[in-house]
Amino acid sequence: MRNWLRTFLARNGIGLSVYLLGAVALWVIVMIILPQLFMLDFSFRNNWQQIDPSRMGGPDDVYTMVNYHFLAFGSPNNPDPFNVVDVTVFFRTIVAAICVTLFDLALCYPIAYYLAQVARGGKARLLVLALIIPFWVNELLRAFAFRILFGEEGTINAILMGIGILSDPIDFVREDVALYAGLGYAYILLMIFPIYNVIESLDKNQIEAARDLGSSWWRIHRRVVIPFAKPGITSGCTMVFMLSAGALAAPQILGGPSSLWFTQIIYQWFNTGSNWPRGSAYAIVLMLTCVLLVLILMKLFKVKIGEIGR
């Protein structure tokens, strides 16, 4: 460590070294460690409803599991064996996020493969541009645009009814189609680019060799391309899953009246419920579950965390 520091100082000079180390320290401590620590701390605290504000910070302000207990079992006068609403929403959010991830993977793998191995020069650049430009529009505006597209009086219904496929409009928003489409579309680039990066570094000859040895297209992908692209696929899936499970704007705007995303509950506790400790507990549970799922996924597909970072 000391040697490393010495060479680092020698290479960059004192001024730059201090700046670089300071920036990294600021980033790690202020943006990563501290917020999580505060959240963790908060989640074990009593809120002002449970403890008198004048006694906060005093000897009575002890750590408590009450917020986690509430997520699992609800209020003391809850007749159900567990907190039906919150727990259901929690699992529905996780499952829905997994579905969005799988949907994105199915959609993006062919696009990434096409971009990386098939398309040449200008065509590939044009396609990348077409993928990126919609993201110049603000996320909220894009969500509202989807609402217009998928709404009961929306463009898609109008077209389907116009060409006679539907006689009555389908409420895509109520059916959550709009929400899943919106979420899927929101993170499409995060799925495409990691996969694209990996597949682009795959030697074309590998594909041709497999083909020459008699492989069908399907087998070439299963045995050569997908194993090679695994780090990219895992990386893309991780990001899409994490972000869709943690999305707020899209569920807020595109979610049907009966569907609640877990983040919306968290938001309510922080905002309208003004119960930050409870919101923190909910957020911690969501985060830990997501991390755990990702770790399991990586274990299953034998991907190391270092490979994802590439």
Partner: peptide, 13 residues
């Protein structure tokens, strides 16, 4: 036919 590539193109995985 079977082709042996210049860089061999063995499957690394």
């Amino acid at each position: 036919t079977a082709l042996i590539f210049q860089n061999l193109a063995l499957f690394p995985l």
